[in-house]
Computed example of a mutant assay.
Amino acid sequence: MATPIGNLGDISRRALDVLRRADRIACEDTRVTRKLLSAEGIATPTTAYHDHSGPRERGRLIDAVAAGAAIAVVSDAGTPLVSDPGFKLVREAIEADLPVTALPGPSAPLVALLLSGLPSDRFFFGGFLPPKSAARRQALQGLAGLDASLIFFEGASRVAASLSDMAAVLGPREAAVARELTKLHEELRRGSLADLAAHYEAAGPPRGEIVIVVGPPAVQQAGEGFDLDAALTQALQHASLRDAAATVATASGLPRRRVYARALELAKEGEPAKDCGAEE
Results as ranks from 00 to 15, higher is better:
residue 152 F to D: 02
residue 127 G to V: 11
residue 154 E to L: 07
residue 147 D to W: 03
residue 120 S to M: 11
residue 173 R to I: 00
residue 108 A to T: 03
residue 125 F to R: 12
residue 109 P to M: 09
residue 157 S to K: 14
residue 79 T to W: 05
residue 154 E to I: 06
residue 162 S to Y: 00
residue 84 D to L: 09
residue 158 R to G: 05
residue 181 L to N: 00
residue 100 V to G: 07
residue 169 V to F: 06
residue 142 G to Q: 04
residue 180 E to Y: 04
residue 175 A to C: 10
residue 74 V to M: 05
residue 78 G to L: 08
residue 157 S to R: 15
residue 138 Q to L: 08
residue 88 K to L: 15
residue 156 A to N: 07
residue 165 D to M: 04
residue 110 L to R: 07
residue 105 G to T: 12
residue 78 G to C: 13
residue 172 P to W: 03
residue 91 R to A: 15
residue 71 I to M: 04
residue 164 S to E: 15
residue 95 E to Q: 14
residue 87 F to V: 09
residue 148 A to N: 05
residue 160 A to T: 02
residue 164 S to M: 08
residue 128 F to T: 01
residue 124 F to P: 00
residue 142 G to C: 07
residue 123 F to P: 00
residue 86 G to W: 14
residue 80 P to Q: 03
residue 160 A to F: 02
residue 114 L to T: 15
residue 76 D to H: 09
residue 106 P to F: 11
residue 159 V to R: 01
residue 134 A to E: 12
residue 97 D to I: 04
residue 75 S to E: 06
residue 143 L to G: 01
residue 75 S to Q: 07
residue 111 V to G: 01
residue 142 G to M: 02
residue 149 S to E: 00
residue 131 P to M: 03
residue 127 G to W: 12
residue 110 L to H: 06
residue 99 P to K: 11
residue 102 A to K: 06
residue 126 G to E: 13
residue 171 G to H: 10
residue 108 A to V: 07
residue 127 G to P: 07
residue 178 A to C: 12
residue 126 G to W: 11
residue 180 E to K: 09
residue 141 Q to A: 15
residue 124 F to N: 03
residue 108 A to I: 08
residue 139 A to S: 14
residue 161 A to F: 03
residue 177 V to L: 12
residue 78 G to N: 12
residue 172 P to T: 09
residue 119 P to W: 07
residue 178 A to Y: 03
residue 75 S to L: 09
residue 98 L to Q: 01
residue 137 R to I: 04
residue 95 E to P: 04
residue 78 G to K: 10
residue 167 A to N: 01
residue 180 E to C: 02
residue 132 K to Y: 04
residue 121 D to I: 01
residue 138 Q to M: 09
residue 161 A to G: 10
residue 93 A to W: 05
residue 150 L to T: 03
residue 174 E to Q: 14
residue 84 D to E: 13
residue 84 D to A: 14
residue 100 V to S: 12
